[in-house]
């Protein structure tokens, strides 16, 4: 009904349309304001409660029961090890899957079944991946509760997310370019390598960073796969015991002593800084790629 009035050509309809047209930016800006205000208030809360707890101790020390000495060294290193490794596993696999889906079997029945399932997989709760990682990798394959198990679990967890982005990235490459290259006699490999990938790679990288950011914040699957928190040695190999930052943060925040809650806020600031650094790295990499691509074009 409402639609009909709006679409109708009567005077009243036109008036309403005009009012809506004027109002819409305000309505949209309210949405933006809510999103930004949430983040800003979160940051302000973090900095006011945890700002004074920021210190080198927090980065360089091992966990401790004394809040003055407590740090997240093993958790930070564990996070970097597992998440870094998972990115190395996940991003190439995702790109390969996406290329197969888009360039080789586009429109095929297999491709549609696969992509449907991948999208579904992206919505599976992360703790399920933890259970799979524990049952299949740690016990089934005998890898134990180690860095490599954690990395594979996180890789599988982020795989659907990154694959979906990579598929979208490949789809943004105009078909005219492909057809042109094929018309000149290029093979599929040549088309993918010289035409499609250079254009799609920047967006793929964004997908990769999204995946890494998600993996960095995951506590549930790691709690299942590793379960450890108090570790006073650095991870030195793929088969070291490990813990990650979200576990430490969660443990601190649920303790009664206010000092640990403050530490948790400070820890979150560090986690956010690491995320920011990763994002900055990805953006600069993307800029670099785009610039190289533009040179290629000339």
């Amino acid at each position: 009904m409402g639609n009909q009035i709006l679409i109708g050509t009567g005077r009243r309809g036109v008036k309403l349309k005009k009012i809506l047209d004027k109002l819409l930016p305000f309505i949209l800006s309210i949405a933006v304001f809510i999103a930004v205000a949430t983040i800003v208030s979160l940051l302000i809360t973090l900095i006011t409660t945890g700002g004074h707890r920021l210190s080198w101790n927090l980065i360089l020390n091992y966990p401790s029961s004394n809040p003055e000495e407590a740090g997240m060294r093993s958790a930070i290193l564990g996070s970097i090890f597992t998440v870094g490794l998972s990115a190395l596993i996940c991003i190439p696999l995702s790109i390969a899957t996406a290329i197969f889906l888009v360039e080789y079997s586009r429109g095929g029945r297999l491709a549609s079944i696969l992509s449907y399932n991948i999208s579904n997989l992206a919505g599976v709760p992360s703790v399920v991946f933890g259970v799979v990682g524990l049952g299949f990798l740690a016990y089934g394959l005998g890898m134990g509760r180690t860095v490599i198990t954690g990395a594979f679990t996180l890789a599988v967890l982020t795989l659907p997310l990154v694959t979906v982005t990579c598929v979208e990235a490949l789809k943004t490459v105009p078909d005219d370019l492909r057809q042109g290259a094929y018309a000149l006699g290029a093979t599929t490999v040549q088309v993918v390598r010289r035409v499609v990938l250079p254009r799609a790679l920047p967006m793929m990288l964004t997908g990769g960073i999204l995946g890494i950011s998600r993996a960095l914040g995951e506590a549930a699957p790691i709690l299942v796969v590793s379960g450890l928190l108090f570790i006073r040695e650095d991870p030195v190999s793929l088969f070291s015991k490990f813990t990650v930052m979200p576990l430490q943060l969660y443990n601190w925040i649920s303790r009664p002593q206010p000092a640990f809650v403050e530490l948790s806020s400070a820890g979150i600031i560090i986690l956010l800084l690491i995320l920011l650094a990763l994002n900055a790295l990805a953006i600069s990499l993307r800029q670099l790629l785009v610039r190289r691509m533009e040179q290629l074009w000339r």
Binding site: P63, L223, L228, L229, F230, R232, L247, N251
Partner: peptide
């Protein structure tokens, strides 16, 4: 409790490596 004890114990015996989980 275990964290506090393990930390103090490892200060006395640095060669003993204790890991504590929260499963």
């Amino acid at each position: 409790i275990t964290e506090a004890v393990a930390e103090a114990f490892m200060k006395t015996y640095p060669a003993v490596k204790i890991s504590v989980g929260i499963s």
